[in-house]
Amino acid sequence: MREMTCIVCPNGCHLTVNETNDEILVKGNLCPRGKDFAIQEIHHPMRTITSTVKTVYKEVPTIPIKVSKEFPKERIFDVMNQINHIQVDYVAQQGDVLMENVLGLGINIVVTSNILKETIHE
């Protein structure tokens, strides 16, 4: 038996997971997402991250980004390394993809704010 906290939403359900032969029994989840989370967490924990990327604009030195979807937890710092090498040199908008299929993980780096559009008037 394993105990874990579901991190899908702020409810943070306390889960107990029983693995028997081919079946995984999850208890404590308030919604089906909790069961999916538990199964994923046992087989291959996945996470997502947010960070910032550098820009060429002095007024807005960095803009916030996110990773489009979850990816294997153990690759977090590899992905961060990629993010650290990005530099934005145009007025990017929320939703713009700055890097596609990062490290072949099927994830994109996506801008999460319109701060450049709001601030930089070229």
Binding site: T50, T112, S113
Partner: peptide, 25 residues
């Protein structure tokens, strides 16, 4: 929220997991 760039906002309002800037914008 401009500086809360982490995600987890908006699960109740928008039923989505948004970052701070996405939520407030």
């Amino acid at each position: 929220l401009k500086q809360c760039i982490h995600d987890g906002f908006g699960l109740i309002q928008f039923k989505e997991r948004l970052s701070g800037p996405e939520y407030v914008e």
